[in-house]
Design a protein around this nucleic acid. Sequence first.
DNA 1: GTCTATATGCCGATAGAC
DNA 2: GTCTATCGGCATATAGAC
Lengths: 190, 190
Amino acid sequence: MPYPAQTDRESIVKIARDAIEQDGIEELSLARLASKLGIKPPSLYRHIPNKSALLQAVVVFTFQQLFQAYEVAIQASGGDAKEKLMTIFRTHRSFAHANPETYVLAFTTTLPEQRANEQMLERLVLPIQELMATITGSQKSLSALRGALSLIHGFVMLELNNQFRRGGDLTEAFEASIETYLLGWQHQEK
Amino acid sequence: MPYPAQTDRESIVKIARDAIEQDGIEELSLARLASKLGIKPPSLYRHIPNKSALLQAVVVFTFQQLFQAYEVAIQASGGDAKEKLMTIFRTHRSFAHANPETYVLAFTTTLPEQRANEQMLERLVLPIQELMATITGSQKSLSALRGALSLIHGFVMLELNNQFRRGGDLTEAFEASIETYLLGWQHQEK
DNA sequence: GTCTATATGCCGATAGAC
DNA sequence: GTCTATCGGCATATAGAC
């Protein structure tokens, strides 16, 4: 049985993702990855062009996972637009907590194919945009959306990088900040 | 004249900073850095213990620069607390635009000495905290501060990584989001 | 058509001479 | 404080075994 390994691109990407999440991105080398797959490093090149393309594939996979998490959350959410938004935002933060390494990788990588990059982000953000528009009106909805995304993403990034000083309840700060931001837009609308 | 170069730690850190800002962090190798300094790579090790420590020094230097930018902005700012806050936040964003590579490096690096890390961040954030407290009252000021930092940092990070889709005025979105966030806290206070 | 064996050149890092 | 010499590990390229 000479070459029983038989791997494929999808397996490589998922194992790479898990390795990054477990040991950090700095510890991922193609040699270690090949070893986990039971093959030799050059064999990887039958499935991926280079390491950079592999990391880009992990980024795409991560955004797909995040999108699926959104879908589940939206399905399960009830209440008014504000409550639905909070459900999505809590899901976003939970995803980042559960996948810190790949979250940071995904949001600090710019994919070379600009079109694909934009389509992916637009698809992710669409449900948030629609819900925000019901709060702010369509006039200011793009600015309101961008602020909301900034608030959520910034909070998570500062949190993951240990850049909030100790003390206080981070979940409380997350909830209060977002609710206050949405409240501001409700007053702004008038 | 055998070894005329004569460098020191401060020069190394500043040249490393400039090299990162010019060519991106992935292009910084100790070999290239040594070449810019007119010395051979092993000579660097008389001044720094390793590459990681050098990058940490660049992070500390970047936070010091950002702090100085804050000081200048605060000195020059007038108006009420809200207008002073806007001046600081605009300064923060301008700094990120002027130093995108080292900004991302600084905010995605956690220094190993937790104490020094916290002191540096606390010192940076203190003027913002005091101004926020005049808007929100001391009760909720920690959450309000954390939300404000998240909004500013998140906006800048999404912007630097090309993660806002095209269209609309980003400066307008920045201004409107922050003003609305502060407005929300003013209403929340009651 | 998939994997192995082998090789190149760059990297961070160390030892020891001047 | 700088140098030369050298190390192991890395990403990557190519030739060929099965």
